[in-house]
Protein backbone atom coordinates (compact mmCIF):
# COMPACT_ATOMS: atom_id res chain seq x y z
CA UNK A 1 0.00 0.00 0.00
CA UNK A 2 1.10 3.54 -0.72
CA UNK A 3 0.07 5.51 2.36
CA UNK A 4 -1.61 8.90 2.20
CA UNK A 5 0.17 11.13 4.69
CA UNK A 6 -1.65 14.37 3.94
CA UNK A 7 -4.99 15.19 2.41
CA UNK A 8 -6.49 18.58 1.62
CA UNK A 9 -9.70 19.68 0.02
CA UNK A 10 -9.61 22.64 -2.32
CA UNK A 11 -12.05 24.49 -4.53
CA UNK A 12 -15.05 23.72 -2.33
CA UNK A 13 -14.16 20.03 -2.09
CA UNK A 14 -14.13 19.47 -5.85
CA UNK A 15 -10.35 19.27 -5.93
CA UNK A 16 -8.32 17.00 -3.65
CA UNK A 17 -4.67 17.01 -2.70
CA UNK A 18 -3.01 13.77 -1.63
CA UNK A 19 0.53 13.52 -0.41
CA UNK A 20 1.53 9.89 -0.78
CA UNK A 21 4.45 7.85 0.53
CA UNK A 22 6.35 6.59 -2.52
CA UNK A 23 10.07 6.94 -1.78
CA UNK A 24 11.40 5.30 -4.96
CA UNK A 25 9.29 7.56 -7.15
CA UNK A 26 9.99 10.69 -5.09
CA UNK A 27 13.72 10.10 -5.40
CA UNK A 28 13.59 10.13 -9.20
CA UNK A 29 10.62 12.26 -10.26
CA UNK A 30 11.19 15.48 -12.18
CA UNK A 31 8.77 18.29 -13.06
CA UNK A 32 6.37 17.23 -15.82
CA UNK A 33 6.41 13.51 -15.05
CA UNK A 34 3.37 11.52 -14.03
CA UNK A 35 2.36 8.52 -11.96
CA UNK A 36 -0.42 5.96 -12.39
CA UNK A 37 -2.60 5.34 -9.37
CA UNK A 38 -5.04 2.56 -8.60
CA UNK A 39 -7.14 2.74 -5.47
CA UNK A 40 -8.01 -0.90 -4.88
CA UNK A 41 -8.31 -4.37 -6.40
CA UNK A 42 -11.17 -3.53 -8.75
CA UNK A 43 -9.97 0.00 -9.51
CA UNK A 44 -8.93 1.65 -12.72
CA UNK A 45 -5.39 2.81 -13.48
CA UNK A 46 -5.48 6.62 -13.52
CA UNK A 47 -2.56 8.76 -14.74
CA UNK A 48 -1.90 12.00 -12.85
CA UNK A 49 0.96 14.39 -13.32
CA UNK A 50 2.74 15.06 -10.04
CA UNK A 51 2.28 18.46 -8.41
CA UNK A 52 5.12 18.09 -5.93
CA UNK A 53 7.78 15.64 -4.82
CA UNK A 54 9.78 15.50 -1.62
CA UNK A 55 12.76 13.16 -2.05
CA UNK A 56 13.83 13.55 1.56
CA UNK A 57 10.45 12.74 2.99
CA UNK A 58 9.90 10.15 0.28
CA UNK A 59 6.54 11.51 -0.77
CA UNK A 60 4.81 12.66 -3.94
CA UNK A 61 1.79 14.94 -4.20
CA UNK A 62 -1.07 14.71 -6.67
CA UNK A 63 -3.93 17.15 -7.04
CA UNK A 64 -7.01 16.07 -8.96
CA UNK A 65 -10.55 17.11 -9.65
CA UNK A 66 -13.30 14.67 -8.73
CA UNK A 67 -14.96 13.91 -12.05
CA UNK A 68 -15.95 10.24 -11.95
CA UNK A 69 -15.93 7.05 -9.94
CA UNK A 70 -12.17 6.60 -9.85
CA UNK A 71 -11.45 10.09 -8.61
CA UNK A 72 -14.37 9.81 -6.16
CA UNK A 73 -12.76 6.65 -4.81
CA UNK A 74 -9.50 8.55 -4.45
CA UNK A 75 -11.33 11.38 -2.69
CA UNK A 76 -12.76 8.94 -0.16
CA UNK A 77 -9.39 7.56 0.90
CA UNK A 78 -8.61 9.06 4.32
CA UNK A 79 -5.18 9.96 5.66
CA UNK A 80 -3.49 6.81 6.92
CA UNK A 81 -5.14 4.62 4.30
CA UNK A 82 -3.69 4.53 0.84
CA UNK A 83 -3.54 3.53 -2.77
CA UNK A 84 -3.06 -0.14 -3.62
CA UNK A 85 -0.80 0.75 -6.53
CA UNK A 86 1.30 3.75 -7.54
CA UNK A 87 3.60 3.43 -10.56
CA UNK A 88 6.15 5.93 -11.76
CA UNK A 89 7.80 8.23 -12.48
CA UNK A 90 6.52 7.98 -16.05
CA UNK A 91 6.81 10.14 -19.13
CA UNK A 92 9.54 12.57 -20.07
CA UNK A 93 10.48 15.37 -17.73
CA UNK A 94 9.94 18.97 -18.79
CA UNK A 95 12.90 20.40 -20.67
CA UNK A 96 14.01 23.28 -18.47
CA UNK A 97 16.46 25.87 -19.78
CA UNK A 98 17.13 29.57 -19.49
CA UNK A 99 15.33 31.36 -22.31
CA UNK A 100 14.42 34.77 -20.91
CA UNK A 101 10.81 35.81 -20.67
CA UNK A 102 8.39 32.93 -20.10
CA UNK A 103 4.62 32.75 -19.52
CA UNK A 104 3.05 29.88 -17.60
CA UNK A 105 -0.70 29.57 -18.11
CA UNK A 106 -2.79 27.25 -15.98
CA UNK A 107 -6.47 26.42 -15.82
CA UNK A 108 -8.35 24.17 -13.39
CA UNK A 109 -6.16 21.42 -11.88
CA UNK A 110 -3.64 22.13 -14.63
CA UNK A 111 -2.35 24.76 -12.20
CA UNK A 112 -1.15 21.93 -9.96
CA UNK A 113 0.87 20.40 -12.79
CA UNK A 114 2.16 23.82 -13.76
CA UNK A 115 3.47 24.61 -10.28
CA UNK A 116 6.72 22.57 -10.26
CA UNK A 117 7.43 23.52 -13.88
CA UNK A 118 6.98 27.22 -13.09
CA UNK A 119 9.30 26.96 -10.12
CA UNK A 120 11.95 25.10 -12.15
CA UNK A 121 11.78 27.70 -14.94
CA UNK A 122 12.23 30.48 -12.40
CA UNK A 123 15.13 28.68 -10.74
CA UNK A 124 16.75 28.26 -14.16
CA UNK A 125 16.91 32.04 -14.44
CA UNK A 126 13.88 32.82 -16.56
CA UNK A 127 11.55 35.74 -15.89
CA UNK A 128 8.28 33.93 -15.30
CA UNK A 129 4.86 35.48 -15.55
CA UNK A 130 2.17 33.17 -14.35
CA UNK A 131 -1.50 33.38 -15.28
CA UNK A 132 -3.96 31.15 -13.49
CA UNK A 133 -7.69 30.99 -13.77
CA UNK A 134 -10.88 29.32 -12.63
CA UNK A 135 -14.57 29.61 -13.24
CA UNK A 136 -15.05 31.53 -10.01
CA UNK A 137 -12.96 32.73 -7.05
CA UNK A 138 -13.74 29.79 -4.74
CA UNK A 139 -12.56 27.28 -7.33
CA UNK A 140 -9.12 28.82 -7.69
CA UNK A 141 -6.26 26.66 -6.39
CA UNK A 142 -2.62 27.21 -5.36
CA UNK A 143 -2.67 31.01 -5.68
CA UNK A 144 -0.15 31.51 -2.90
CA UNK A 145 2.18 28.82 -4.19
CA UNK A 146 2.06 30.13 -7.74
CA UNK A 147 2.83 33.60 -6.54
CA UNK A 148 5.95 32.30 -4.82
CA UNK A 149 6.98 30.20 -7.81
CA UNK A 150 6.82 33.06 -10.33
CA UNK A 151 7.90 36.69 -10.66
CA UNK A 152 4.49 38.00 -11.52
CA UNK A 153 1.14 36.32 -10.92
CA UNK A 154 -2.06 37.25 -12.76
CA UNK A 155 -5.38 35.75 -11.73
CA UNK A 156 -8.52 35.43 -13.84
CA UNK A 157 -12.05 34.28 -13.15
CA UNK A 158 -14.71 33.59 -15.75
CA UNK A 159 -17.35 35.37 -13.62
CA UNK A 160 -15.17 38.29 -12.55
CA UNK A 161 -15.45 37.38 -8.87
CA UNK A 162 -11.68 37.79 -8.49
CA UNK A 163 -8.85 39.24 -10.58
CA UNK A 164 -9.28 39.78 -14.27
CA UNK A 165 -12.82 39.19 -15.49
CA UNK A 166 -12.27 36.76 -18.36
CA UNK A 167 -10.05 34.00 -19.63
CA UNK A 168 -6.40 33.35 -18.93
CA UNK A 169 -5.72 33.36 -22.64
CA UNK A 170 -6.82 37.02 -22.89
CA UNK A 171 -4.27 38.07 -20.30
CA UNK A 172 -1.69 35.91 -22.06
CA UNK A 173 -2.33 37.66 -25.36
CA UNK A 174 -1.89 41.10 -23.75
CA UNK A 175 1.55 40.07 -22.54
CA UNK A 176 2.44 38.48 -25.88
CA UNK A 177 1.66 41.79 -27.56
CA UNK A 178 4.39 43.43 -25.50
CA UNK A 179 6.88 41.10 -27.22
CA UNK A 180 10.02 39.23 -26.15
CA UNK A 181 8.21 36.17 -24.81
CA UNK A 182 10.38 33.13 -25.55
CA UNK A 183 8.16 30.31 -24.28
CA UNK A 184 4.59 29.68 -23.18
CA UNK A 185 3.72 26.68 -21.04
CA UNK A 186 -0.03 26.07 -21.08
CA UNK A 187 -1.57 23.38 -18.94
CA UNK A 188 -5.26 22.89 -18.26
CA UNK A 189 -8.47 21.71 -19.92
CA UNK A 190 -7.97 20.71 -23.56
CA UNK A 191 -10.05 23.60 -24.96
CA UNK A 192 -7.91 26.08 -23.00
CA UNK A 193 -4.67 24.56 -24.31
CA UNK A 194 -6.07 24.63 -27.82
CA UNK A 195 -7.04 28.30 -27.63
CA UNK A 196 -3.73 29.23 -26.00
CA UNK A 197 -1.80 27.41 -28.75
CA UNK A 198 -3.82 29.10 -31.49
CA UNK A 199 -3.03 32.51 -30.03
CA UNK A 200 0.69 31.89 -29.51
CA UNK A 201 0.96 30.56 -33.07
CA UNK A 202 0.00 34.05 -34.30
CA UNK A 203 2.85 35.51 -32.29
CA UNK A 204 5.29 32.78 -33.27
CA UNK A 205 5.99 31.88 -29.64
CA UNK A 206 6.95 28.31 -28.84
CA UNK A 207 4.26 26.65 -26.71
CA UNK A 208 4.40 23.59 -24.57
CA UNK A 209 1.27 21.76 -23.44
CA UNK A 210 0.91 18.76 -21.13
CA UNK A 211 -1.62 16.14 -22.23
CA UNK A 212 -3.55 13.71 -20.08
CA UNK A 213 -5.23 11.22 -22.40
CA UNK A 214 -6.77 7.88 -21.42
CA UNK A 215 -4.02 5.44 -20.53
CA UNK A 216 -3.58 1.92 -19.18
CA UNK A 217 0.02 0.93 -18.58
CA UNK A 218 1.88 4.23 -19.01
CA UNK A 219 4.96 2.49 -20.39
CA UNK A 220 4.24 2.43 -24.14
CA UNK A 221 2.61 -0.95 -24.18
CA UNK A 222 -1.04 -0.28 -24.99
CA UNK A 223 -1.14 2.71 -27.31
CA UNK A 224 -4.39 3.90 -25.72
CA UNK A 225 -2.87 7.33 -25.12
CA UNK A 226 -1.98 7.94 -28.75
CA UNK A 227 -2.25 11.52 -29.92
CA UNK A 228 -1.58 13.05 -33.30
CA UNK A 229 1.32 15.50 -33.12
CA UNK A 230 2.62 17.08 -36.30
CA UNK A 231 0.56 14.60 -38.32
CA UNK A 232 2.22 11.63 -36.64
CA UNK A 233 0.87 9.27 -34.00
CA UNK A 234 2.75 9.64 -30.72
CA UNK A 235 2.23 7.98 -27.35
CA UNK A 236 1.70 10.54 -24.58
CA UNK A 237 3.04 8.11 -21.97
CA UNK A 238 6.54 7.67 -23.40
CA UNK A 239 6.87 10.43 -26.02
CA UNK A 240 5.12 12.99 -23.79
CA UNK A 241 3.17 14.01 -21.80
CA UNK A 242 4.46 17.39 -23.02
CA UNK A 243 4.27 18.30 -26.68
CA UNK A 244 4.55 21.33 -28.91
CA UNK A 245 1.10 22.88 -28.69
CA UNK A 246 1.30 24.10 -32.28
CA UNK A 247 1.55 20.52 -33.50
CA UNK A 248 -1.08 18.77 -31.36
CA UNK A 249 -4.40 17.72 -32.86
CA UNK A 250 -6.55 18.90 -29.94
CA UNK A 251 -9.86 18.07 -31.61
CA UNK A 252 -8.93 14.42 -31.90
CA UNK A 253 -7.74 14.41 -28.28
CA UNK A 254 -11.03 15.91 -27.09
CA UNK A 255 -13.01 13.22 -28.90
CA UNK A 256 -10.79 10.43 -27.62
CA UNK A 257 -11.23 11.65 -24.04
CA UNK A 258 -14.97 11.04 -24.47
CA UNK A 259 -14.54 7.36 -25.46
CA UNK A 260 -16.02 5.93 -22.27
CA UNK A 261 -18.26 8.79 -21.23
CA UNK A 262 -21.40 6.65 -20.88
CA UNK A 263 -19.61 3.84 -19.06
CA UNK A 264 -18.04 6.36 -16.72
CA UNK A 265 -21.45 7.78 -15.91
CA UNK A 266 -22.86 4.32 -15.11
CA UNK A 267 -19.94 3.66 -12.78
CA UNK A 268 -20.06 7.06 -11.10
CA UNK A 269 -23.82 7.06 -10.58
CA UNK A 270 -23.68 3.60 -9.02
CA UNK A 271 -20.87 4.74 -6.72
CA UNK A 272 -22.71 7.92 -5.70
CA UNK A 273 -25.87 5.95 -4.90
CA UNK A 274 -23.87 3.54 -2.78
CA UNK A 275 -21.93 6.37 -1.17
CA UNK A 276 -25.04 8.36 -0.28
CA UNK A 277 -26.70 5.30 1.21
Amino acid sequence: MFKIVKREEMAEGTVILNEIEAPLIARKAKPGQFVILKANETGERIPLTMAETDPEKGTITVIYMVVGKSTALFRDLPVGSGYQDVIGPLGRATHIEKLGKVICVGGGTGVAVLHPITRALKEAGNHVTCIIGARTKDLLILEKQMKAASHDLRVCTDDGSYGHHGFVTEVMEDILKQGDVRLVVAIGPVPMMKVASNITRKYGVKTMVSLNPIMIDGTGMCGGCRVTVGGKTRFACVDGPEFDGHEVNFDELMLRLQAYREDEKVCYDAYCTLHDA
Binding site: E44, K69, I216, G223, G224, R256
Partner: peptide, 27 residues
Protein backbone atom coordinates in the same frame (compact mmCIF):
# COMPACT_ATOMS: atom_id res chain seq x y z
CA UNK B 1 -12.57 5.82 -30.94
CA UNK B 2 -13.19 2.08 -31.12
CA UNK B 3 -9.85 1.25 -32.69
CA UNK B 4 -7.55 -0.52 -30.25
CA UNK B 5 -4.18 -2.15 -30.35
CA UNK B 6 -4.62 -5.79 -29.36
CA UNK B 7 -2.39 -4.98 -26.38
CA UNK B 8 -4.82 -2.40 -25.10
CA UNK B 9 -7.95 -4.41 -25.87
CA UNK B 10 -6.62 -7.57 -24.21
CA UNK B 11 -5.05 -5.72 -21.26
CA UNK B 12 -8.35 -4.00 -20.53
CA UNK B 13 -10.17 -7.31 -20.66
CA UNK B 14 -7.61 -9.63 -19.05
CA UNK B 15 -5.53 -7.66 -16.56
CA UNK B 16 -8.10 -5.00 -15.72
CA UNK B 17 -11.07 -7.39 -15.96
CA UNK B 18 -13.14 -5.03 -18.08
CA UNK B 19 -15.34 -7.99 -19.00
CA UNK B 20 -16.65 -7.70 -15.45
CA UNK B 21 -17.39 -3.97 -15.78
CA UNK B 22 -18.93 -2.29 -13.75
CA UNK B 23 -17.83 -4.64 -10.94
CA UNK B 24 -14.34 -3.70 -12.09
CA UNK B 25 -13.96 -0.03 -12.95
CA UNK B 26 -12.07 -0.30 -16.24
CA UNK B 27 -14.42 0.00 -19.21
Amino acid sequence: IGIFSANEYLTRSNLMKAYEFPKYDTP
